[in-house]
Design a protein around this nucleic acid. Structure first.
Length: 692
RNA sequence: GGCGAGGUAGCUCAGUUGGUUAGAGCGUCGGAUUCAUAACCCGGAGGCCACGGGUUCAAAUCCCGUCCUCGCUACCA
C-alpha cells in the first residue's frame, strides 16, 4: 500500500496541465491528462471529499506571438480563439473543472509577479549577463526563432535562429551568418542582457530526499526514473526570465522589457486559478495550497515531468509557504493508427471535430481512451479498437444489461420496482458482489489505474448479465412469478449501482441512467450508498422509459474516420512536395567559388559516441581526405564504401567531435526523409572531375 | 554515446516483497439460450514471459550481457 493512500486528507487540490493556446486539443491530451484527472476528481467528490479541480489556459511564451505574426493577427486574438475553443471542448466532454482560468487573467499576473518578487527578495535567484541578438529598430531582444540568416553548415539563407530547416542542424542564433530580424528585417546587433536564474543545483539534496527517498514506492516508475535521471545528471541553474514583450513583466529593478519565462509562470497558474475559484465561491484559497492536510496531485503528460517534479516544486519549496505535490501521475503518449500525434502535421483526432462527427458520444471516447490509456507505455489509438470497445463493451455488456432490466421490468411490472421478497443465497451473494464494486473501482482510481477502473466497472455489468442468464426470469415468470420479483429487484439494484459507480468514468451515461431509474425525483445515492444502503432503488419506485444508453458504431463510421486520416496524410505529403521558394540570386562568381568534385568513399566508420555521424575517407582525385558526415541514421558504413559522391572540397575545415572534417558530401532527401547521395548519373567518371 | 521507461496469447494489457498448472478483455473455435441493440451466458484452443548467461530448492519477477521500441540528453551534414 502506498504511503499516500494511507494518509487522511482534509482536502484535495487536483491540477490538470494547462493547455497551451496555440492550437486546439486532441485525443492525446484527453487520454493522457484530462480524462484521468476528471475521473479522479469526480470520484473524490462522490466520496464527499473537499476537492478543487483546477486548470486553465497557458497563454504566454514565444510561440504565441510567433503564430500571431504568421497569421497576421494579434497575440490576443490567438489566445482568445484557442482559449474558448479549448474551454468549450472540455465542457462538452464533461471535464468538470471547478475552475478553468487563463494566464492572461489579472489575478494570475499579480500572483506570478508576487511569487517572483518574493523569491527575488529572498535571494533565491542568481543573475547573469549574457550577449543576445537585439533588434535596434524594434527595440527588443530577439528570441532564436525571430532571427533568420544563412546556415553556417549548409548555406541555406533562410535558417532560423534555433534550427536550420534545410539541413536540420540545431543552431544558436549567434551562429547565423548575416542574421536578420524577422520583425523589422534589420540586422540585429549583439547586446548584453541580464537574466534571472533559478539555481536548481542548490536544491539537489532537497529533491533527492523528497523524491528519490520519499517517493520511491508511490510514484510511477516512468516518472520516478525520469526525475532520477535528471537529478543524477546534475541540475543546472535555469533562466526564469526572457527578453520578450509577451508575458508577465519581470517585477523587479532591471526587469524592464523582460517577462517571466512561460514555464515559470504557467504552474503558478494553478494557484491563480484556485484563487479565482475561491473568490467566486466565497472560500479561502490558501488551505488548498498551504495546509499540510491538503493532498496536491498534478496530472500531466510525460513531456511535463521536469517542470512538475523539479522546477515547480523547487519554486514552491523556495517560497516556503506551500505544500508539495504528493504525486505526479504522468502518462505516456498516445499514438494514432500507429503514428505519433502531431499538431503541425495535423495527425490527430481533434476534440471539436469528434464532437461534430460523433454527437452524443462523449462517453464513448472517454471510455475508449480510459480503457486503453497510455499509463505505463505509449499506446496506440485505432478507430477499429474504438469501434470494438463501443460495440463489444459499452453496447453489448453495459447498455444491453441495462436495457434488459428496463424492458423486463416494464413488461412484467409496468415499470414498477417489485418487492424483494425472500432473497435466496444467489441473490445475497450477487448483492454482496455489487457492494464490493465501489471499493474495487475506487482503489484502482486512487492508485491512478484508470484502465483497471474501467474494467472493474464493466465487470459489474457482466455480473448483472450473468445473474440474469443464470436466473432466467423470462422462464421463471411462467412457473414462479414470485421468484421473478426477487430476481428483478436484484437486477434493478445492480443497474442502480451502475448508475452511481459509472459517474466518474461515464458522467453522461450515468446521468441518463439516473434519469431513467428515477424520472420523478433526483436520484441521489452517493458512492458509499452502493455499499451501505439497504436499497438504492426502493420497491415501488416507478422507472422511466427504457432508452438505449449506447448505439453501435458501424463500419462506415470507422472507414470515414480512416479516410479522413488518409486525406490528412496525402495533404501532408503534398505539402512536403511543395518546393521551397527559390533562394536569392547568386552570381556566377558565387557559384564558381565552390569547388565541387566527384569523389569516392573508400572508408567509412561510425564516429564513436555519436548517433548521427560517420567518419568517411574520400578519394577526391586531389587527395584522400577525411569528411565527417551526419548520415549515420540513413546509412550503414559498410553499405556506402565504394560509392561515388559529390564533394564540396574547398569548404572551410571544421572539427566535429575532435575529428577535422575537410569538406562536405552533397545530399538530398527522399519522400520518407531518408538521405540520398547526389552523384554522377553514370559510372566511370574519374575522381577529381570538376562539377560545373 | 550516456540515462530513463518498456518488450508477457493473434490484438490491447495485468502479473503485488521470487513460491502451486503465467492471468483478463477483445478476436477465434465450439456449446447453450431467446428477456435484450444477432447482444448476453458457458466452455475450448492459443505463451521458449525479446534473446543469452548467472544466483536460487524455486525466476516473467533478482544479477550480468545482447537485441528492439519510445523518451530525455550529448553530438549533428
Amino acid at each position: 500500500m502506498s504511503k499516500e493512500s494511507t494518509q487522511n486528507h482534509q482536502r484535495y487540490t487536483i491540477t490538470a496541465a494547462l493547455p497551451y493556446t496555440n492550437g486546439p486539443i486532441h485525443i492525446g491530451h484527453l487520454a493522457g491528462v484530462y480524462v484521468p484527472a476528471d475521473i479522479y476528481a469526480r470520484y473524490l467528490r462522490l466520496k464527499g471529499h473537499d476537492v478543487a479541480f483546477i486548470c486553465g489556459s497557458d497563454e504566454h511564451g514565444v510561440a504565441i506571438p510567433m503564430k500571431a505574426k504568421k497569421e497576421g493577427v494579434t497575440p490576443m486574438q490567438i489566445i482568445d480563439k484557442y482559449h474558448s475553443l479549448i474551454k468549450d471542448s472540455f465542457e462538452r466532454f464533461g471535464i468538470a473543472f471547478d475552475n478553468y482560468s487563463r494566464t492572461s487573467a489579472p489575478v494570475h499576473h499579480k500572483t506570478a509577479s508576487d511569487f517572483f518578487t518574493k523569491l527575488h527578495g529572498q535571494d533565491d535567484f542568481i543573475e547573469e549577463v549574457t550577449e543576445q541578438l537585439y533588434d535596434e529598430e524594434a527595440h527588443q531582444f530577439l528570441a532564436d526563432r525571430f532571427v533568420t540568416g544563412t546556415c553556417p553548415r549548409c548555406g541555406n539563407p533562410e535558417a532560423y535562429g534555433d534550427q536550420c530547416e534545410s539541413c536540420g542542424s540545431s543552431l544558436n542564433a549567434t551562429d547565423l551568418i548575416d542574421p536578420k530580424s524577422t520583425i523589422t528585417g534589420s540586422k540585429p546587433v549583439l547586446r548584453e542582457t541580464r537574466h534571472w536564474f533559478l539555481p536548481l543545483d542548490r536544491y539537489q539534496d532537497f529533491l533527492k530526499e523528497w523524491i528519490l527517498v520519499g517517493h520511491k514506492a508511490d510514484w510511477k516508475p516512468n516518472v520516478y526514473g525520469q526525475v532520477k535521471s535528471w537529478i543524477d545528471e546534475g541540475l543546472k541553474p535555469r533562466a526564469v526570465t526572457r527578453d520578450l514583450d509577451w508575458g508577465i513583466p519581470v517585477p523587479v529593478k532591471g526587469g524592464e522589457g523582460k517577462v517571466l519565462y512561460v514555464w515559470f509562470d504557467a504552474p503558478i497558474g494553478y494557484i491563480s486559478s484556485t484563487k479565482e475559484w475561491a473568490e467566486r465561491e466565497g472560500k479561502d484559497w490558501e488551505p488548498y495550497w498551504k495546509d499540510k492536510d491538503t493532498k496536491l496531485v498534478h496530472f500531466i503528460g510525460k513531456d511535463n515531468i521536469v517542470f512538475h517534479c523539479v522546477i515547480f516544486p523547487v519554486m514552491l519549496h523556495a517560497h516556503g509557504d506551500y505544500v508539495l505535490p504528493e504525486n505526479v501521475p504522468a502518462n505516456e503518449f498516445l499514438n494514432l493508427e500507429g503514428q505519433k500525434l502531431s499538431t503541425s502535421k495535423n495527425w490527430a483526432v481533434w476534440l471539436h471535430e469528434y464532437l461534430e462527427d460523433f454527437p452524443g458520444r462523449e462517453d464513448v471516447l472517454r471510455y475508449t481512451l480510459t480503457a486503453n490509456a497510455p499509463e505505463t507505455k505509449d499506446n496506440d489509438f485505432t478507430w477499429k479498437d474504438f469501434q470494438a470497445r463501443n460495440n463489444n463493451e459499452l453496447v453489448a455488456i453495459f447498455g444491453n444489461f441495462v436495457n434488459r432490466v428496463m424492458v423486463l421490468t416494464q413488461k412484467y411490472y409496468d415499470g414498477k420496482v417489485p418487492e424483494a421478497g425472500s432473497l435466496q443465497e444467489i441473490d445475497r451473494q450477487t448483492l454482496e458482489e455489487v457492494q464490493k464494486a465501489p471499493a474495487l473501482i475506487g482503489k484502482a482510481i486512487e492508485n491512478y489505474r484508470f484502465r483497471e477502473a474501467s474494467q472493474q466497472l464493466m465487470n459489474l455489468a457482466r455480473l448483472g448479465n450473468k445473474y440474469l442468464a443464470d436466473e432466467e426470469p423470462w422462464k421463471q415468470i411462467k412457473t414462479d412469478p414470485e421468484r421473478v420479483q426477487s430476481i428483478m429487484y436484484v437486477a434493478i439494484q445492480i443497474t442502480a449501482a451502475l448508475a452511481v459507480v459509472s459517474e466518474p468514468l461515464l458522467p453522461f451515461t450515468s446521468a441518463k441512467l439516473k434519469a431513467m431509474l428515477s424520472p420523478e425525483k433526483e436520484f441521489t445515492p452517493d458512492w458509499k450508498a452502493v455499499t451501505e444502503a439497504e436499497a438504492l432503488i426502493p420497491s415501488g419506485t416507478v422507472l422511466g422509459k427504457a432508452e438505449l444508453l449506447f448505439s453501435k458504431i458501424e463500419d462506415k463510421d470507422v472507414s470515414e474516420q480512416l479516410e479522413k486520416l488518409e486525406n490528412t496524410k496525402k495533404m501532408n505529403e503534398a505539402a512536403n512536395k511543395t518546393a521551397e521558394p527559390q533562394k536569392e540570386t547568386s552570381t556566377f562568381d558565387d557559384f564558381t567559388k565552390m569547388d565541387l568534385r566527384v569523389g569516392t568513399i573508400i572508408e567509412a566508420e561510425k564516429m564513436p559516441k555519436a548517433d548521427k555521424l560517420l567518419v568517411l575517407k574520400v578519394d577526391t582525385g586531389i587527395d584522400t581526405r577525411t569528411v565527417v558526415s551526419g548520415i549515420a541514421k540513413s546509412f550503414k558504413p559498410e553499405d556506402i564504401i565504394g560509392k561515388q559522391v559529390t564533394v564540396l572540397v574547398n569548404l572551410a575545415p571544421r572539427k566535429l567531435r575532435g575529428v577535422e572534417s575537410q569538406g562536405m558530401i552533397l545530399m538530398t532527401e527522399n519522400k520518407e526523409g531518408k538521405l540520398v547521395f547526389v552523384n554522377p548519373d553514370e559510372a566511370g567518371v574519374t575522381n577529381g572531375t570538376i562539377i560545373s
